[in-house]
Every structure is written in structure tokens, then in C-alpha cells.
């Protein structure tokens, strides 16, 4: 079984002298495991995903996929981006087909596999639509199909549902669980939403910001697929949320000491009362 993704003691900073975006992080994803990294914005979670994707190189540490070092982006580590990254000059089907075309697979086989991938994300009816004719949720489903068709060892997802409305997001969670169940892929998923993390993950990793480090790891042994409103989920969400709130408060305090003092709520109330008067 393939799909063992390991980040071992990785550190990354964007320029020398700056703080570490991520520092000495070790995350090991077992084949078929669903790992979600969650943390406040600016904690380095996207950096982590880009390291796994090979779009960034670590300054220290190693990134391994099935014991081989990751050196560049490639189809065995397919990425689903937050801003979908689909090509607007192609139809949905052509977008899904593109990776296979680059692999040099024959047209007839490509057609079959595209049909199959679109069926998996329930988009067979929209195969010939252009990207701007699809809704946000449909676009992300095309992006998922485009990634899955490559039969990657791991699926890397960078806040894929962050830009969707709540109803669509819930639907996408259900479909992603379905797909994960059917394909048994290793999924490395990054998000700022605690609810999303707890609902989907086998293991949630809470990051610590400035510098980015692992703050806590929580294994979630609830069976899949999960009910979003179950009591167990709510309890774990509460635990993770406390961790994150601590983290956000700590970061804000740090920033505040430097150049910003938060106003008291009363002040804000008065400010709101003044809004627009005197225009």
C-alpha cells in the first residue's frame, strides 16, 4: 500500500533573518489516513502543504513520500487548491483530462477515465460546461476529480472549501468522505475551520503560530461517515476550539504589545453609534 507521507523536522522561512514560517515540524501520515492540520491564519499551514506538494523546499528537514524524497510538484501528490486553479479555457471534462494527457495516455482510455472521475464527483451532466458556468461547489468537485484521476498516492487539500457557503460545504464534506471511503487515499488537509477538521479527520494537528510548530495532536476514533451534530463531535470541537482560541489570543497579545491596543467593547459601541453621523 502506498501513500505514506512524512514531513520530518521541516523548517521553512521565506527570507533569512525573518521568523520561521514553520519550525521543526514532524508529521507522519500513514497510508489511507486522513490528517487535518488546523490553526489560525498565518500559522504556516499553507506553507506546510506547499512543502508536501514540493512547491516549496524546506530549509531544514526532509519531506518523504513512500520513503522517497519529494523534490518538485508532481501528479503523485495531487493538490486541490482553495481558489480551485482550474483552467478557464477548458471545459470541465478537459480540465479533468489534462493530467492524463500530460502523462501520454491514449485518448480512448482518457475518455473512459474522465467519465468515471466525473461520475465520482456527480458531475457527469456538466462535463462540457466551461468553468465560469459552474457554481463554486461544482468547481471544487471538478478540481477534486482532476486530482483523483491521476491516481495520486496522496491528496493534498489546501482549504478547499473555505470559499463555499455553509450548505455547500456540508455537502462537500459528505461527498469527500464518500470519495475517501471509495478510494482509500491518504489525505493531507489544511483548514482554519475546527468543525471541518474534526468532522473529517482521523487525526487533527493543531498548529502554533509564530513560529509555526505543532501545538497538539488529537486522534479522533469516531467511525466514518460522521454526523456533524453528534455529541461526540461537538465535544472534540470544543476541545480543539479552546486550543485555537488560546493560540489566537496569544498571537493577538503578542501583536498588541508591539503596536496595537484592543479597544474595550464599550468604546466600540460608541464608535458604532457615531458611524455615519457628521457626513
Amino acid at each position: 500500500m502506498t501513500g505514506k507521507l512524512e514531513l520530518i523536522g521541516v523548517s521553512k522561512r521565506y527570507s533569512v533573518g525573518e521568523r520561521w514560517a514553520v519550525q521543526d515540524i514532524t508529521i507522519r501520515c500513514a497510508p489511507g489516513e486522513f490528517v487535518v492540520v488546523v490553526g489560525p491564519s498565518g500559522c504556516g499551514k499553507s506553507t506546510l502543504l506547499n512543502l508536501a506538494a514540493g512547491m516549496l523546499k524546506p530549509d531544514q528537514g526532509r519531506v518523504l513520500l513512500d520513503d522517497r524524497p519529494v523534490v518538485s510538484p508532481g501528479p503523485e501528490r495531487a493538490v486541490v487548491f482553495q481558489e480551485h486553479g482550474l483552467f478557464p479555457w477548458m471545459t470541465a471534462a478537459q480540465n479533468v483530462e489534462f493530467g492524463l494527457k500530460m502523462k501520454g495516455i491514449a485518448r480512448s482510455e482518457r475518455e473512459d477515465r474522465v467519465a468515471e472521475a466525473l461520475k465520482m464527483v456527480h458531475l457527469s451532466h456538466s462535463a462540457n460546461k466551461l468553468i465560469h458556468q459552474l457554481s463554486g461547489g461544482m468547481r471544487q468537485r471538478v478540481a477534486i476529480a482532476r486530482a483523483l484521476i491521476l491516481n495520486p498516492a496522496v491528496l493534498l487539500m489546501d482549504e478547499p472549501f473555505a470559499a463555499l457557503d455553509a450548505q455547500t460545504r456540508t455537502l462537500m464534506h459528505e461527498q469527500l468522505q464518500e470519495i475517501w471511503d471509495a478510494t482509500k487515499k491518504t489525505i493531507f488537509f489544511v483548514t482554519h475551520s475546527v468543525g471541518e477538521a474534526v468532522r473529517l479527520a482521523d487525526r487533527v494537528i493543531v498548529l502554533h503560530a509564530h513560529p509555526g510548530r505543532v501545538r497538539r495532536e488529537i486522534r479522533i476514533d469516531l467511525p466514518h461517515p460522521r454526523q456533524f451534530d453528534s455529541r461526540d463531535i461537538a465535544e472534540i470541537v470544543r476541545i480543539v476550539r479552546t486550543e485555537i482560541e488560546d493560540e489566537v489570543n496569544r498571537v493577538n497579545k503578542e501583536l498588541a504589545d508591539e503596536f496595537w491596543k484592543p479597544r474595550k467593547p464599550a468604546d466600540l459601541g460608541q464608535l458604532a453609534g457615531d458611524m455615519g453621523s457628521g457626513i
Binding site: S72, G74, M90, F98, G99, K101, M102
Partner: peptide, 25 residues
């Protein structure tokens, strides 16, 4: 830049990148 990231992830390299990604983009 997302087209570049998506393109390389999907395996479009060298001339293929220019032909299928950059030119239409």
C-alpha cells in the same frame, strides 16, 4: 500564478507548459 502551480502539479513541463498552459492563459 495558480495556473503555473496547477500546471506543474498536473505534470505539464517544458514545451507542454508553454503550449497548454501559458499560451491559452
Amino acid at each position: 500564478p495558480i495556473y503555473h502551480r496547477a500546471g506543474t502539479m498536473l505534470g505539464a513541463r517544458g514545451l507542454n507548459y508553454y503550449r497548454y498552459i501559458l499560451l491559452p492563459a
